[in-house]
Computed example of a mutant assay.
Amino acid sequence: MIEAAMIWNEPNNKSHWDPEVDPDWSRFAEMAALAGRAIGAANPNLPRVLGGMSPIDASFLHNLARRGVLDHLDIVAVHGFPLDWNLWCIDEWPQKIAEIQAATHLPVWVSEVGVSSFGAEEVQAWGVDRTAALLIGNAPRIHWYSLYDLPRAWPATTRHREAEGSSYYRHFYMGLLKEDGTPKQALERFARYTPAMGICQWFHFEDHRLEPAVTWLKRLGVRHLRTGLSWADSFRPNALAWFDRQMEALQDFDVTVTFCFTPEHLGIMPHHTSAPREPQRFAEFCATMVERYAPATSSKPSTNRVAVA
C-alpha cells in the first residue's frame, strides 16, 4: 500500500526546519542521506522522495546535490500555494516545475498544492479547476492539500502563529470539507479530476477524522494519498497501535508516507523543527517504519511488533 517514502516535509521552510540551528542545511543533508540509505536498505524497491520544497527553489536543490543527498533519492517534490502564500501567479506553475526539472534528473512531484476558501468558496472551486488544468500531465503525482479543514481548536504548523495575520488563518480553510465534514463547492470540482489528482491529508495522533476521511476518499475516487508518520509521535504511549490503525485504514490507497518531526528530547533545540543531535536516530525510525509497513518481501503490513524508541 505504500508507494513511496518521503524524507521530511518542506525542509527549506522555517516552519518545518529551523534555519538558526542549520543555516546551510548541512545537518539536514546528513540526516536525509542517512535516511535515504536506511530506507533503501530496508526496501530497495521503495521510491524515496525529498520532502516537498516550499518555496520552490532550484538553489536549495543544488545545495543538497552538492552535498550528495540526491544520490540517495529517487524523486524530488515541490509545494505551491500561489493564491494564498506564494509571491507568484498560479499560471506560473508549469514554469516552476520546469525550473526544478532543469536542476535534476529525478522526477518532480507536486506533493502539496491547494487553494483556501478563506476569501470565498468560489475562489477555491475555481482554483481546483485551474490547478488541474495546469498540473495534470506536467507532474507524475499531484496531491491536493487537503481533504478536511484544520480544526480551529488545533494550532497550525507555522512559526509565528497569529502574528502572521490572514496568512495564518488561511491554514484553517484549505480543505474540500469543512471541519464538521460539510462539503464545500470545491469538493464536486475535485471529483472531476480523480484519480489524476490525489490528496494530502495529515492525520494527528489518534485523529478522529481517520475513518470518515477514508469514506470520503473512496467516494471521491482518490487513488494516491499522502500522509505522515511522526517521529515525535513514536515516543507517545500506544504510538504503534495508532500507526497500525492509521496504516490499516489506508491500505486501499497508494500511500506516500512522510517521515518527519524531531522529538523534542532528541533535538539540538527542544522543538519538532530542530535538527536532531543524532541524525542516525531518524534514519533508524524511517527504516523501522518501512520494515513494518512496506517490507521488501511483501506489499502487506508486517504483523511483527517492533520498537521505534
Rank of each mutant, 00 (worst) to 15 (best):
I2D: 10
A5H: 05
N9S: 13
H16C: 02
D18H: 00
P19S: 03
R27T: 00
A32Y: 03
A33M: 07
G40Q: 09
P47S: 12
R48G: 09
S59V: 02
H62S: 07
L73K: 04
V76Q: 06
K96D: 08
I100Q: 05
I100M: 02
T104Q: 02
P107H: 14
F118R: 06
E121D: 11
V123Y: 11
G127Q: 01
D129A: 07
R130E: 11
T131W: 02
N138R: 05
H143S: 05
D149N: 15
P151F: 10
P155N: 07
M174N: 04
G175Y: 03
E179C: 15
K184M: 13
Q185G: 08
L187W: 11
R189P: 06
W202G: 08
F203M: 15
E206L: 12
H208T: 10
E211I: 15
R219A: 14
L220M: 06
L220I: 06
V222Q: 01
H224C: 12
W231K: 00
W231Y: 01
A232S: 10
A232N: 09
R236S: 06
R236W: 07
D244W: 14
M247E: 05
M247R: 03
V255Y: 02
F261G: 06
P270G: 10
P270F: 12
S274Y: 01
A275W: 00
F285G: 09
F285Y: 14
A287K: 14
R305P: 07
V308H: 06
